[in-house]
Amino acid sequence: MPPSRLLASLVMCAAFAAMPLGTARAAAACGSGSFDAWLTDFKAEATAKGISAAAVSTGLNGVTLDQSVITRDHSQKVFSQTFEEFSGRMIPPRLTRGSNMMKQYGSVLSRIEEAYGVPGEVLVAIWGLETDFGVNIGKFPTIRALATLAYDCRRADEFRAELMDALRIVERGDLAPAEMRGAWAGEIGQTQFMPSSWLKFAVDFDGNGRRDLMRSAPDVLASTANYLKGHGWQRGKDWEPGGPNFAVLQQWNKSDVYARTIAAFATQLSHAP
């Protein structure tokens, strides 16, 4: 799985640990008390924030802690590959398939570029790098993973907000909880949106009444374009390092090596026969 787009900001929890028992809500005191008690409190807060009782119930009932997610989060290593190493490993195996995808979805990509200003090469490059064009979207139950990370202390506030947004996706009818499977850190869909990005940028481009980033390639590609447009993509401008749109690719992934790899892959796709 490619490096997460999440910022590695640490959440300080010492203040909560120092509070007398009962002065902080179980949901606020990350990692203190049982997971079940924390989850009960979180359900109450979600309902208080206007999420329907049905969405809270279907999304969270029976959810348990996933220790493997905590282990993965705590054992992340600094991304140390050079651009040459990473791009050399990632682009060549995907170039032929990427070129084929450009042809297969040519009319869709043209309509997306007209609507959002983002060329198909960039979208297909992201699609290939994130999940091998939808083949490897991840198998972790998203709500369980997010609940685990929200309970843990390392980035509790960040994942707490994402868990709320996952419930809003359920409430909106985009996905059922059982359909929400993805990366261990909560990314879902064929270009790996966090729930907050799904809510903000997902679009129904195939016109079937659902924003489906799990199965619908038009929705996936258009939503990715909408994300890039929302982060400042300039129609017709360069995406290579130094160009005005390279900074937008860095918003997609904070790793300079990853952003450069997207740019290089897109450029190669633009020159493919």
Rank of each mutant, 00 (worst) to 15 (best):
P2V: 10
L6C: 11
A18Y: 12
M19R: 15
T23I: 08
A24K: 02
A27L: 13
L39E: 08
K43Y: 06
T47L: 13
G50N: 04
S52F: 08
S57F: 09
V63W: 01
T64Q: 15
R72I: 09
Q76K: 15
K77H: 13
V78A: 14
V78Q: 14
S80A: 14
R89I: 07
M90C: 02
L95Q: 10
R97Q: 14
S99G: 15
Q104F: 07
Y105M: 04
S107A: 13
V108A: 04
R111L: 10
A125N: 03
E130V: 01
V135M: 12
I137H: 06
A145V: 04
A150P: 03
Y151R: 02
C153M: 10
A156M: 09
D157Q: 15
E158G: 13
R168T: 05
V170L: 10
E171A: 10
G173C: 06
D174S: 05
P177C: 00
A178Q: 14
I188H: 12
G189A: 09
Q192E: 08
Q192S: 01
M194G: 05
S196I: 05
V203S: 06
F205V: 01
F205Y: 11
R210H: 12
R215A: 12
S216R: 00
A217S: 10
S223W: 02
T224V: 06
Q234H: 11
Q234V: 13
E240C: 11
P241E: 02
G242H: 03
Q250T: 10
N253R: 04
D256K: 14
A263E: 06
S270L: 08
